[in-house]
């Protein structure tokens, strides 16, 4: 019980700070999916899976920054990864459990992004701070608005993180531990390659301009040549 309460508290605080970092504190690289998943991999003793998970989410996040809250997706994925690691659940790149983790974290990211848009639309319909510009308090009124929003962001982010990590942990645990099936050994390899390569493809696509796939082709030929020589 004490362990569960500690995990919830840690997820709440860390998740709140990380989501706040994305929303308010200036989007530094600390919330990049590769960083979070790599750290989660190191903590849970599965660095390879951490790298794979991180690269996949990172590349997808560069490919399309909107329509999915990638920071939230990475918090859910890396949080679940660490929590399940504490209970000796093992993943591995491309396995059923890791696919479930990527799937649920992207879904949570999409839901979170759409909820945030709805919230902003609601605020837009009835701006709560219209009086601010006429306030006799002056600039202090703006400061208090910012502090209120940061506090709200912290609390909302904490609750969101706990929910996200709980959902991702639950689903990944069910898939990892309760599904008794004989896996085709080639499928995890195919998935382990396909997801990050898809990420690179959509990232290159987002660079806009039809010439970029051509330049990427030059990169492929160059590295194949170097690999063949080595």
């Amino acid at each position: 019980m004490v362990q569960i309460v500690t995990i919830v508290a840690v997820v709440f605080i860390l998740g709140a700070i990380l989501l706040l970092e994305r929303r308010c504190l200036g989007k530094t690289a600390l919330v990049q999916p590769l960083v979070l998943c790599l750290l989660a991999g190191i903590i849970s003793g599965e660095e390879t899976t951490g790298i794979w998970l991180g690269i996949s989410l990172q590349l997808l996040s560069i490919g399309q920054g909107h329509y999915c809250n990638w920071v939230y997706a990475s918090i859910a994925a890396s949080g679940a990864f660490v929590v399940l690691g504490l209970y000796d659940v093992r993943f591995g790149p491309g396995t059923l459990a890791s696919i479930a983790l990527v799937l649920v974290s992207i879904l949570l990211g999409i839901i979170s992004d759409s909820a945030e848009r709805r919230l902003l639309r609601g605020e837009n319909a009835a701006p709560p701070d219209a009086e601010l510009w006429r306030s006799e308090q002056g600039v202090e009124a703006f400061a208090s608005l910012i502090y209120r929003r940061v506090l709200r962001g912290f609390l909302l982010g904490g609750v969101q993180s706990v929910l996200g990590v709980a959902l991702a942990t639950g689903l990944a645990y069910v898939v990892a531990e309760k599904t008794i099936i004989q896996l085709n050994p080639l499928m995890p390899v195919a998935v382990a390659i396909a997801i990050p390569i898809f990420g690179v493809a959509v990232t290159l696509g987002s660079l806009s301009g039809r010439a970029y796939p051509f330049y990427a082709g030059i990169g492929v030929l160059f590295s194949m040549g170097v690999w063949a020589i080595i």
Binding site: Q64, H66, Y67, A100, I181, I197
Partner: peptide
Amino acid sequence: TILSGFVLNLKRAFWVYVLPAFLFLVLILE
């Protein structure tokens, strides 16, 4: 994979919604 990445990306954010469906399909296929 590369081809589908490039093609899906032509429709802006379309792939963000297609990817979870695809992953779900992979889960079932496995």
